[in-house]
């Protein structure tokens, strides 16, 4: 069995040499930013708003992508503003993006924003049970394409009306 021990040793050494960094699948944030821009465009707040404030909780590359996009579209209506906010400020915006790194705060955010007319968007799937309207996810089966889940129930509870453009391309969940 000496040969066996030797073999295990060699396998361990070889596998140890292999790069072993872990990773998480990343979104295409530029694409996400355009999605968010369109979500705002096809969501109705009552009463109608002339300016929309987008708040981002946590560090997400979508912030820069959105700021660039909003700068490009500055002649549009309503006017959009993007800023990074803390969890406690989450009730003061119209659109709230919860970055992937901050999803462990989602319960607290859900409590603060409960039933408020805020379009809550999460960078993690299956977040509807925390009052999230739209949850981004990466569809592995579709060659790692970015897609989104839409909870019409949560939108309704928040008195938000989302148009067919958003609904038709969403994975509808409760």
């Amino acid at each position: 069995m000496n040969k066996t021990r030797f073999f295990f040793f060699i396998v361990l050494v070889v596998l140890g040499l292999v790069p072993t960094k872990s990773y998480s699948q990343n979104f295409d944030y530029k694409e996400n930013a355009v999605y968010v821009y369109n979500f705002v465009k096809y969501t109705n707040w009552a009463p109608r708003k002339s300016s929309i404030q987008i708040g981002i909780i946590g560090n997400s590359p979508v912030e820069d992508a959105l700021k660039n996009l909003v700068a490009q579209k500055r002649n549009g209506s309503p006017t959009l503003s993007v800023r990074n906010i803390s969890v406690n400020e989450s009730k003061n915006v119209d659109v709230l993006i919860v970055s992937k790194s901050e999803t462990d705060q989602i319960k607290k955010i859900a409590a603060i924003t409960a039933n408020l007319p805020i379009l809550v968007i999460a960078e993690k799937e299956n977040m509807s049970r925390f009052g999230v309207c739209i949850s981004f996810f990466i569809d592995e089966d579709n060659n790692y394409k970015t897609q989104y889940q839409l909870s019409l129930r949560n939108c309704k509870q928040r008195k938000l009306s989302v148009s067919e453009q958003i609904q038709n391309n969403a994975v509808l969940i409760r």
């Binding site: 295409d28 694409e31 355009v34 999605y35 369109n38 979500f39 096809y42 990466i138 579709n142 060659n143 790692y144 394409k145 970015t146 897609q147 453009q165 958003i166 038709n168 391309n169």
Partner: peptide
């Protein structure tokens, strides 16, 4: 648009 984004081939 959203529809065009949805039909966009994955860039990953």
């Amino acid at each position: 648009s959203i529809e065009e984004l949805s039909k966009l081939k994955s860039r990953y």
